[in-house]
Design a protein around this nucleic acid. Structure first.
Lengths: 224, 224
DNA sequence: CCACGGACTTTGAGAATTCAAATTCGTAAA
DNA sequence: TTTACGAATTTGAATTCTCAAAGTCCGTGG
């Protein structure tokens, strides 16, 4: 079985390749990988070479890594465990939205299929984690969505918060206490490009202003 | 922080020293330790020497190991996590009593204090795990009980199942499907030393026979 | 067409954990 | 006492993961 370390590398390569990079074709550089895993470049190179030997990635020296089909499968499984655990911690254990990431980071490597399935049932086959990230299903499929940055929305659009791009603790805490969590429906009331402020209205009629800076950290689904 | 391996050694030394051995004074032999951890004796010796260096155990070559106060504290914390997780898996995730041990074995090393506290609250500050083993409280204290083997009980005694000494899957499965779980109240109706059979009565009036072999694997509290 | 700089790779080494095999210790029996 | 056996320890080596530092590759500016 894959060690925690291997799972972390594979997961990171996945997010770098598919969620921040250009998809199937994209190569993840050793530099980026090393930086985001907080190891030295030499360590990343060594590890990636060994991952390549086990068939989880394909590696071209001085170009980068890509996941193989097998690697992608593992990545999605780890992501599934991570996100399921996060949701579980919030929904079942009542933990705060902003304190769950590190817990999930540790738990994601030791959750068996059996436990995962139990949690999945308990939570009612959820599709999104508390950050709004999609949870791959047991076969590794992820529900695709069309997301745009809140800052790019035009006036009058009805939107639903999809995911939060920034995982900083203070930001999450702010959003949480202001009801700006994934799933929340909003209407863009106005946007002042000069002032850099966007105005939102909740279903309840309440209003809230957000700076462009913050509105760039929130992705939304636009209602048809 | 202690690695999983270190926690496993400390936990095993604890159970060997206190739960199967002679308590505070007892020395755990390298042989016993190695056997129950499924490593070679040389490995146990090496590891124990390094544990001694970190102050978790005191080690006398050719005599054995004992936990220091510090080691005992760690052992009780690990035991707390293990047992709490087991109970959690049964109570919250609805898993079967006999399939939880291995899961807990992995999870016990990655449960943070924060999560542990949440689970503790969710379960209502429980004192016993599903096998009937006491769960140390957050400060490491364990509720003491007076247990005797069911096989040693005399006729007419009212008893409550305290713990199951044998963790074999098939045995646990049998007990579970026959209602012989910790907490269950029973009366010893008769015992035939020649036949090696003991007869039990449930509160419901139902009766059940158990061989001495099995009755030696069940510990009970005797009602005053 | 070459030197530079930055990114990447290689190399040597160390920590943690393990095993197999050789050695040593202690004691119970002779 | 001396021996012999079983238990424990030591030794040498492998695995996995890591770092620091030295070496290599390659696109860019001159």
């Amino acid at each position: 079985m894959a060690t925690s370390t291997v799972e972390n590398y594979i997961k990171k390569i996945y997010t770098l390749q598919f969620e921040q990079g250009g998809g199937e074709e994209a190569n993840v550089s050793m530099g980026d990988l090393a930086t985001s895993l907080d190891v030295t470049p030499g360590t990343a190179t060594t590890m990636v070479k060994s991952l390549a030997k086990t068939g989880l990635v394909s590696y071209t020296p001085r170009v980068g890594v890509q996941l193989t089909a097998q690697g992608k499968e593992l990545a999605l499984l780890v992501l599934r465990r991570h996100r399921m655990v996060e949701l579980f911690l919030v929904k079942v254990l009542g933990m705060d939205w902003h304190e769950i990431h590190d817990e999930a980071e540790a738990l994601e490597h030791v959750i068996s299929d059996r436990v995962l399935e139990r949690i999945d049932i308990l939570l009612g086959r959820p599709e999104l984690d508390p950050h709004g990230d999609p949870i791959p299903d047991a076969s590794g499929a992820i529900a695709e969505r069309d997301l745009v940055l809140l800052v790019d929305c035009s006036i009058g659009q009805k939107v639903r918060i999809g995911r939060i791009e920034n995982q900083e603790d203070t930001f999450l805490k702010y959003l949480e206490s202001n009801g700006l969590t994934p799933g929340q429906d909003l209407t863009v009331v106005s946007a002042d490009a000069q002032a850099g402020v966007i105005s939102l209205e909740f279903g309840s009629g309440e209003n809230r202003q957000l700076g462009f800076e913050a509105a760039r950290k929130i992705s939304v689904e636009v209602a048809e």
